[in-house]
């Protein structure tokens, strides 16, 4: 099996889309001549031309809306918003339009649109450029939210996303582009809404997604040194959400911590924690632990920036302290 960077897995996914489906085109800021802010589409303009690899003005609202409109008449647009921070100026098109058109038209219209965007902090880009809003989008009926943590899943879930007929927020974590992982040559897909047991275990369940999966895995390795066996669950998608896999694990381990990069207030971990206690209260040995970034804007200075992003040591300490392990 070949090893591949997540960035290259995404490039492969996009090339496949353009090669296989003439209804597909890419659109976004600096995806063509510049090659993509994160170099995912380097060389695409030369290969596919300006019609299918469209550099847009810095007008998120209209180019996201143009994705929606073209999808309404049967195109399969793949729109790139440079980072998730900038999706805020296109929120009207995403939430009021993309997510609503199927329902409001009673199924007469569909919006098969993939919005690729880059999420997460840790790059010393400070408060406006270090946020994660996947959880916000996950609360909107009509949207799907896909949050891959590995190159394998990035390619596999992108393939599945292309077959879906709904507006999708496909959020790639900035710090994962250089992560290497196995990607088979043979065709495969990873269905949307199926969580993955990244590491099986028996004593405690660590639930994570996107950039936090690696943190949870690292924490699990450290806990293992103290003979604490953790099961790491990668949610893969926030919508649709695979709660069953989480509950099954909790029934086995009776302890669970949810690890999430974004702010604790309003974090998706709150939804997961609440769902778990509703579904499996009697299986719990203690409260569901939420390990989130604190409610502060991201600072620039490295030392204090690192204090706001959950780390493996933070997870280890929290698990040991809260569960008395």
């Amino acid at each position: 099996m070949a090893e591949m960077l997540l960035r290259d897995a995404m490039s492969k996914a996009l090339r496949e889309a353009l090669d296989e489906d003439e209804r597909c085109f890419l659109m976004g800021e600096d995806i063509g001549a510049y090659g993509g802010a994160y170099a995912v589409t380097r060389g695409f303009l030369e290969k596919y031309g300006e019609e299918r690899v469209r550099d847009t003005p810095i007008s998120e609202s209209v180019f996201v809306g143009a994705g929606v409109g073209s999808a309404m008449i049967g195109m399969r647009p793949i729109v790139e918003v440079m980072t998730i921070n900038f999706t805020l100026v296109a929120m009207d098109q995403i939430i009021n339009h993309a997510a609503k058109l199927s329902y409001m038209s009673n199924g007469q219209l569909t919006v098969p649109l993939i919005i690729r965007t880059v999420t997460g902090g840790g790059g010393q880009l400070a408060a406006t450029h270090s946020q994660s809003f996947e959880n916000w989008y996950a609360s909107v009926p009509g949207l799907r939210v896909v949050v891959p943590a590995t190159p394998y899943d990035a390619l596999g879930m992108f393939r599945a996303s292309r077959k879906d007929n709904n507006p999708i927020i496909f959020a790639e974590h900035a710090l994962l582009y250089r992560v290497r992982g196995e990607v088979p040559e043979e065709y495969y897909e990873v269905p949307l809404g199926k969580a993955r047991i990244a590491k099986p275990g028996t004593d405690v369940t660590l639930v994570a997604y996107s950039g936090m999966v690696r943190v949870a895995e690292e924490a699990a390795a450290k806990l293992e040194e103290d003979n604490i066996s953790s099961e790491v669950i990668d949610l893969r998608c926030l919508s649709p959400l695979d709660l069953d896999t989480v509950i099954e694990s909790v029934k086995k381990t009776n302890r669970v911590a949810v690890v999430e990069e974004t702010w604790k207030t309003g974090g998706f971990s709150g939804t997961i924690a609440s769902d778990i206690q509703e579904a499996a209260f009697d299986d719990l040995d203690g409260p569901v632990i939420r390990i989130n970034g604190p409610d502060v804007p991201a600072p620039y200075a490295r030392n204090i920036e690192q204090l706001m992003i959950p780390s493996a040591d933070w997870v280890v300490e929290s698990v040991k302290y809260n569960f008395g392990l």
Binding site: V62, V64, V68, G69, I73, H97
Partner: peptide, 25 residues
């Protein structure tokens, strides 16, 4: 008839997209 849209201005980007789709087709 691609809709009445109730967010003031919101239908304009959609119109652009429909027109883009027309052009690409």
């Amino acid at each position: 008839f691609m809709g009445g849209h109730a967010i003031v201005g919101g239908q304009l980007p959609l119109a652009i997209g429909i027109a883009l789709g027309v052009k690409l087709k």
